[in-house]
Simulated scan of single mutants.
Amino acid sequence: MTPEVAAILGLSAVTLVLLLGALFATTRQDRRPLRSGSPGETPLPPVEVVQPPPRPSAGHVGIDYPDPRTIKVGDTIDRQGVRTRVLGALYLSWQGKQWTEYLLDDGTHRYQWLSIETHDGPTPDDPPHLEVLLWTPVPTQGMIPAKTTLSVEGVEFFPVERGTAAFRSEGVTSMPERGLLDFADYRAADGRLLCFDRLQGQPWNSSHAQPLPPGSINIEKKS
């Protein structure tokens, strides 16, 4: 073998080695697994989920305070320092809803109605709550409840609900034992409530409501 041929073969061998090395490096790079971070990086700590503080309990009806649904005709109730006697009750139902209204007398023939209704919570996981309203008659000077906004004593009331409820009466109510009661409920922007009701065929009556916390009522059962 001449020196020239040996030199050519040596250069060819070196070139082949370099080409194989480059091909091997390229193949390793293409098979590298994809990762979200590079080796040597400190992994981020897990995100800490902060739990909201538990909501304070508003008390339990029948445990922390008397259950107003146990009021009976003849009982005496003390509401915010005012003692009244329960003269009668109306048990009403409308479209699957049921509620009770009690006629109260404070001894001065100043009559008011106390309505008690159970409402479902905003979600199925929320417990039901009681709505307790004290209704006081207000003069509306023959006003008829319209399906639009009403202005009473300078306050705008918006229609909420209206219908005809079936009722059963007990005690002194000035109502028949059974019958139908038309009603129309309104609400003002500040939350005040206004209601029109009438025994079918009779003139309309009107009253406004004051909400009462269930725990503000003490019940003295009839002996």
Rank of each mutant, 00 (worst) to 15 (best):
Thr2Trp: 01
Ala6Val: 09
Leu9Thr: 05
Leu11Ala: 15
Ala13Ser: 14
Ala13Leu: 14
Val14Ile: 15
Thr15Met: 11
Val17His: 06
Val17Pro: 00
Val17Lys: 03
Leu19Arg: 03
Ala22Val: 06
Ala22Pro: 01
Ala25His: 05
Ala25Ser: 13
Gln29Ser: 10
Gln29Phe: 13
Gln29Arg: 11
Arg32Lys: 10
Arg35Ala: 15
Pro39Arg: 01
Gly40Asp: 07
Gly40Cys: 08
Glu41Ala: 07
Glu41Trp: 02
Thr42Met: 03
Pro45Met: 03
Pro45Val: 00
Pro46Asp: 02
Glu48Lys: 13
Pro53Glu: 08
Pro53Ser: 14
Pro54Ser: 00
Arg55Tyr: 13
Pro56His: 09
His60Asp: 03
Val61Trp: 04
Arg69Thr: 15
Ile71Thr: 00
Ile71His: 10
Ile77Thr: 01
Arg79Asn: 06
Gln80Thr: 04
Arg85Trp: 01
Arg85Lys: 14
Ala89Val: 02
Ser93Arg: 15
Lys97His: 06
Gln98Pro: 00
Trp99Asp: 09
Trp99Lys: 07
Thr100Trp: 00
Glu101Ser: 15
Asp105Glu: 07
Asp106Gly: 14
Thr108Val: 02
His109Phe: 10
Gln112Ala: 13
Ser115Glu: 00
Asp120Pro: 01
Pro122Tyr: 10
Asp125Thr: 14
Asp126Met: 11
Pro127His: 02
Pro127Phe: 00
Pro127Leu: 06
Pro128Val: 08
Pro128Trp: 09
Pro128Tyr: 05
His129Ala: 10
Leu130Arg: 10
Thr136Glu: 14
Thr136Lys: 15
Thr136Arg: 14
Pro137Tyr: 02
Thr140Val: 15
Gln141Cys: 01
Gly142Glu: 09
Gly142Ile: 07
Ile144Ser: 13
Pro145Tyr: 01
Lys147His: 13
Lys147Leu: 05
Thr148Gly: 09
Thr148Val: 06
Thr148Gln: 10
Thr149Gln: 13
Val152Gln: 05
Val155Trp: 03
Phe157Asp: 01
Phe158Gln: 02
Phe158His: 03
Val160Gln: 10
Arg162Met: 04
Arg162Cys: 06
Ala165Trp: 10
Phe167Ala: 00
Arg168Leu: 10
Glu170Phe: 03
Gly171Arg: 13
Thr173Glu: 08
Ser174Glu: 11
Glu177Asp: 12
Asp182Glu: 15
Phe183Lys: 03
Ala184Lys: 00
Ala184Asn: 00
Asp185Cys: 06
Ala188Gly: 01
Ala188His: 03
Leu194Tyr: 08
Cys195Ser: 08
Cys195Thr: 10
Gln200Leu: 15
Gln200Trp: 03
Gln202Met: 09
Trp204His: 03
Asn205Tyr: 04
Ser207Ile: 00
Ser207His: 05
His208Glu: 08
His208Tyr: 01
His208Asp: 07
Ala209Trp: 01
Pro211Ile: 07
Leu212Ile: 13
Pro214Phe: 11
Lys222Val: 05
Lys222Met: 14
